[in-house]
Every structure is written in C-alpha cells, then in structure tokens.
Design a binder for these strands. Structure first.
Lengths: 326, 326
DNA sequence: TTGTAAGCGTTATCAC
DNA sequence: GTGATAACGCTTACAA
C-alpha cells in the first residue's frame, strides 16, 4: 500500500507538500497540487488513519457504553447515534456492559488507552469515580457530576401518563419501576422523574394515594413471577404507569394471568414509544421519546465538548402515543 | 499521561526492557521486572494503544457492517458478537449500512485505511468487487467468492418448516420471501436455501404445487399493503412459511385483516426464533437460529483467518420453536 | 511556496 | 539480560 513518501517521490516533491494537499492546509501552488493529485490517483494512495491518529493522539472514534443492543430502544438509539456520528466523520465503537459495573470500568480504562475522541454513557451503575474528566463524556438519562446530560423530558412524560389515566377514568393508580429512588442505589437517574411527574400531577388533582412501587435494578429483564408478587396486594388498581414498555408488557401478561382485562379492567401505560411491543396483539399506550432526536443531541454535546462547561443538559420532548391499553 | 520513556527513566533502564515487561516477551531479570512494575504502578502507566497499533499496523478492532441494529435479530447478533470479541481482546466498530451499497463501499474503504483487524459483513448487496482480499472478512448468510461464510442451516430450516405444516394438516402451502432468487439481484444468499429446503421436502412428499412468492429486497421493512396484494390471488392457502419472523408478523396481520384466523384457518411459520414477536398476543412458530452460536462461529473464522483457506464455512444448527401460529 | 526534520509512543532488531 | 536505535506513516514547525 502506497504511503505518503511514495507519493512525494513520484511527484518529485517533499512529503510536507503532499500532506498539505491531502489536508487542504497551507499554501500549495496550483501546478504542484494538480501534479500531486494525479500521483495520488495513480498510486491509489489513501492516508493511513493510524498514523494520523498517532500525531493527533485521537482516533476519530466515539465509544458508546450501553447495557446491550438487544432491547429495541437501545438498538434504535445505537442506530441513530451511529448514523449521526458517521455524518460528522466519526466512527462508533460498541461497548456492551451487560449492566455490569466491572465491565464498564474495564471499558472506561481501555477507551482512555485507545484515545477515543469521546464516550457516550448509558448506565445505572455508579461509575462516577471512574470517569476520566479529561475525556469528553455525555451521559444519557443518568446524572453524574460535571458530565453533560441528554434525557427525554421524563417529568413531562409522567404528567402525560397521569393525565391520560385520569382522562380514561382510572381511580386507583400505581407507578412501578426500577428507577433507582435511593432505596437500591445512589445514582441519580433522570428517569426517576417519570415517577415524580406522575405523582406530582396526581397530587395537583387531589389524588394522594398513588401506589408507588419500586423493585431493584435487574439488567432490564424482569420476570412475571416478580411482578405477580408485587401486584398481589393491590387487586383494586385500575391504572398503571410503568417505567418502560418492557415492564408494561410484562405487567399486562401478569394482569391477564390474574384474569384482568386490559384496558377494560386495568389501563396500562409504558415508556419508550411502544414500538417494541406493537406486535401480534395490542399496541401499548406509551410515552414516546425519539431516538433520532436524542442521537442528535448527544452528538451535539459530545462534539462541542468543553471542559469548562460540562454541566450542559439537553432535554428532548416526549408525547403520549395512544395504543390499545388505555 | 506517563509514557514508556518516563517509566524507563524512573526505573533507570531502557525502554526496550520496559516493553519486554509490559508484553511479557523476552528475558528480564526478576529484579528489574519487579522494579519496573513498581514504577508502572506509581506512574499509573498504561501503554498507548495508538502507538501499539502504529507498529502492528493493526488496531485490534473488528468492524461489523450490517443493515441496522434496530431489528431484534441484528441487535442480538451484535450483542453476542461484541461479547465474543471482547473475550478475545478485540473491540467492535459498528457500521450501519442501512442496506445501501454506497455506504458499504465507503465503509469498506474507510476500514482499510483504519487498519482494522477484520470485517464482518452482513449484506444483500453485491459488494464482491469492493472486497479487499488482504483484509480478513467473514460473511454471514451471503456467499461471496473466497470469503469465509457463517450461516444457519437454512436448508434444514426449510425442511423443518415443511414438516411442521404437513404435521398440522396443511394442504395448500406457500413460501414467501425476499431471498434474492436471481430475479432481483445477483448475490447468492444462503438464506434462499430456506425456500429450497421447504420446496424440496414437500416435493419428496409428493407435493408439487407450492406457491412460491418472491418480492424485491426492501431494507427489511415491508408494508402490509404490499403483502395484501401478494396474497390476494391465493385465498385457499392454509400454510405459509415466511423468510423471517418480521415477514411472518406482517403476514399474520394481513391475514387477520382478511378475516382469516391464525392458526385455525392458516398456519404461519417464521424464521429467526420468534423472540422479536412474542409479545402481547401470540408467539410465532419459528425456525430458531442462536445468535450466540453464530457469534462464536464468526469469531472463530475471523480470528483464525487464513488467505489460503478462505472458503471455509460454518453452518450452525436450527430447531423449530413451536409457538401459537401453527 | 516548498522541503527538512522533529516529534507522536510503541515494538523489534541487534549489538554488547 | 539489556539498551540504543531504527522503523511505523503521518503532521507541523521552522528554515529556506
């Protein structure tokens, strides 16, 4: 494979001039430029990106640390993030953490040694003390000290869900989620505002007896058994707002197994847009966040990263998408 | 950030010795080794991977070119491939092609310049002439000249589907897919063996009037309208084998809209394992391929790549997973 | 406007 | 066992 020296030799000039041509930097006489471009084509020369990274000490790669790519919302987000970065000349390195703190730590370390240009972080773990403050990092949905944040308007999502359930005449309401309200972890997740918005709005309407359920973080996979157990004490609930579509889906199955009809007996709302579960049966009514818009926000924060202004936030809007479960 | 020179200076030795210690290569006196390791810890030294890549002219990164990460099966495959590579010390670069040949070509070029260690290719496009034969490549489900292949046992999958439909008493059978049988593309996809296995088995049972439908490649997203149109001429079909779960799902919706009951009136089988569509309603009966096993096969072929033996194949087994649609 | 040369941080060769 | 030193292929002063 031809290198910059070959081009210089063939074109009868110095390598610096070739470099100037490739990078369109500095002055080059039109005549030499043409000559060099000709040689570049003949030799099919293309600059070695590793060598370029060597001088920059950056490799134009952005790493995305996330639990997995198996859940639809993550897969979607991943897709749009990659597209967005591609448009800006960056490549994406995928780092599945499987929600394990240890793996996140290993990755964070590795990424530093690899001199990636930045990291996107999506986690429920308390990685705060492992974050290298020199490396540009953007977090999604979880708040860390001095780390820029992108989140959907979780609070508003909670309000929208509350309104919908009230509209549909629900009397006995419940919130259920693993959104890390201090009982089980110290990480501050923006996601917990779904719960807050929900409860606050109901309070504002004079409803104070919301059943407020929390269960431990579970790597996003929850069993029916677990929910069965949680729901049993509340047979008269008729409206449930779930932290995610995935939870809503499981809850609906549990309700069915208990002989409840959805939405006739109990109305259920999820979060994420319902796209993952609009399949053979019902569509879930869901608070929808747009992965494409989130991806753009992340890219914006990451590529304009500034150490002195690292507490920026972008909150992306949400809407209620009516399905068949309310 | 400390570099190898700092360590050498601090330890009072040459950088070559430090290098030997880091890489556990060559002889180093126990005493010096201990001394150097001590300094490494003190300075929190970690080798710069870009510099390492510079000498190797390889960066320990494997790229995965695939249509997208939004479809569950792709998301799953991606997840397991990343895990598998991680275990072997490689990182994964995600390259969404959105099924566009142009984007695949750009990526192939880019990856060459980035000196990735290898590429995993999942495409329906005819990229054959853009494949750099010096770069280790493994293809999934599509056959290219001199490119190692991993595929599920598509032919066997077809047979299993045929058997199941016959077992369940179907009389009028149909195959439907975009599996590139020459009418619309030149790429040879292993996937088309699903069709072959299905039809061959039925023939062996004396059934020769299988309705054999093909439609153009569609970036994996197909509309109900399209299928509605395709199915209309065949109102008496009572057993359909679909190229994928995604297609099966849409077909089922179309059948329902036509007033057919599944599985009472028509039985439907998908391909991929049914995991994507086991949601609020029925589970799809499906031929299941295990992404985890596929990931291992890909890793094996890729990391043991040998130019002189580039026509290796690994066929991974499939099973029929009974759902509610047959 | 152009060329020389000094990095960038490793690994690997080759004397000692 | 160990240490100079030459690659690896580029960018970027600095000099001309």
């Amino acid at each position: 494979m031809a290198n910059i020296k070959d081009v210089a030799r063939q074109a009868g000039c110095g390598i610096a001039t070739v470099s100037r041509v490739i990078n369109k930097s500095g002055y080059v006489k039109e005549e030499t430029r043409v000559k060099i471009e000709k040689v570049i084509n003949e030799l099919k020369y293309q600059p070695n990106e590793i060598a370029r990274s060597m001088t920059r000490q950056k490799n134009h790669i952005i790493a995305f640390i996330l639990p997995n790519s198996k859940h639809l919302f993550f897969g979607e987000l991943l897709y749009h993030v990659e597209e967005e970065l591609f448009d800006y000349g960056y490549k994406l390195m995928l780092c599945n953490s499987s929600e394990q703190l240890e793996k996140e730590i290993i990755y964070l370390d590795m990424l530093k040694n690899n001199r990636v240009d930045g990291v996107i972080l999506l986690t429920n773990n308390d990685v705060e003390k492992y974050l290298n403050k020199t490396l540009p990092i953007v977090s999604f949905d979880r708040w860390f000290q001095d780390v820029p944040l992108v989140a959907s308007d979780n609070y508003q999502g909670g309000i929208l869900a509350a309104k919908e359930l009230l509209d549909k005449g629900c009397k006995k309401l419940m919130f259920i989620g693993d959104d890390a309200q201090g009982d089980f972890t110290d990480v501050i997740t923006d996601v917990s505002k779904r719960r807050l918005g929900f409860i606050d709005h109901l309070k504002s309407q004079g409803i104070n007896d919301v059943i407020n359920l929390e269960y431990p973080l579970q790597n996003y996979f929850v069993s029916e058994n677990q929910f069965e157990h949680l729901l049993t004490p509340y047979p008269d609930v008729d409206g449930i707002f779930c932290i995610s579509d995935s939870v809503a889906y499981t809850i609906i199955k549990v309700l069915k197994s208990k002989g409840k009809r959805v939405p006739e007996d109990v109305k259920v709302i999820g979060y994420d847009g319902g796209r993952s579960f609009n399949n053979l049966g019902k569509n879930i009514t869901s608070i929808s966040q747009e992965p494409e818009i989130i991806a753009k926000a992340i890219r914006k924060l990451l590529l304009n990263f500034d150490v002195n202004n690292s507490n920026k936030k972008i909150i992306v809007p949400v809407v209620l998408k009516k399905g068949d479960t309310t």
